[in-house]
Design a binder for these strands. Sequence first.
DNA 1: AAAATATAAGACAAATTTTATCTTAATTCG
DNA 2: CGAATTAAGATAAAATTTGTCTTATATTTT
Lengths: 147, 147
Amino acid sequence: MNISRASDYAIRGLVYMAKKPAGTVCFVKDIAKNTNSPASFMSKIFQTLAKSGLVHSFIGTKGGFTFNAQPENITIKMIVEIIDGPIVLNRCVVNKSSCQNIGNCDVHFMWLDIQKMLTKALSSYSIADFANNAFKNKLSESDLNFA
Amino acid sequence: MNISRASDYAIRGLVYMAKKPAGTVCFVKDIAKNTNSPASFMSKIFQTLAKSGLVHSFIGTKGGFTFNAQPENITIKMIVEIIDGPIVLNRCVVNKSSCQNIGNCDVHFMWLDIQKMLTKALSSYSIADFANNAFKNKLSESDLNFA
DNA sequence: AAAATATAAGACAAATTTTATCTTAATTCG
DNA sequence: CGAATTAAGATAAAATTTGTCTTATATTTT
């Protein structure tokens, strides 16, 4: 019940990039250094981000990474799903055929509802929110205190 | 970003038990059979539940498990935490000393808020909710649609 | 009382996932 | 063209999850 180190590193790396002037080419070496993460691991993470199209990569000397999308449009949900895969709280939520207790799954709707809430929450934060240091709670008091 | 098979099995097992008359002694063999789960795995799961005090175990012939608490008072959060351990969405939320980016962790408050919301949601469902077939959404429309 | 049976407890093991590192390929610069 | 720098891709170690197998305990039967 947590995000992976890889997703955490990815988010921190992208926030670091977003703090630079738009279009800046960033090296994994610098990104890793400034996010307290293993450079070689960060390398593979950015490889995945590049494959997803979220960032663009340049090989060779003076290579590196740039954004392929506006940081405002890159949500935490997007990153977590690119790195960790789809957010699915329980097997029975994936689809009907993957639920062993077809037609009679007591817990199906609970997981579905909580999953909806979670993905909405993760979608409500963007990389830009953190880069701008303009963070404020996206979740209202009522969200935090539902019955 | 999901609960484990073990937690899922635990929940289903306890729901199965809760459908029986209060005080019924249940065997792992039956619990497993009725929840489509491996009996030997379920055995270990109930061992953990027994250690936690949630259920009581009896060894030997005519042994088995009974509730040690009212199903109404057993929340999904309790079960998930007993089986999977504490719900902590990201390392930086555990405590200040575990955050590499002390005093300057951009994402700390996001994870903290989402975690609060998630644990509240998991606390809002009890085993009795599913055993009684009286399930209805615990999450209001506004919860599912916060900005 | 001893043996057989039924049950959970606990030790052990396989499989999967996560977290990395190491090697290769590509590009630039001198 | 060779050296340096960078990402890409292959490989590997570690941790976690999922599961099985053996042992201990209690009950029942003889």
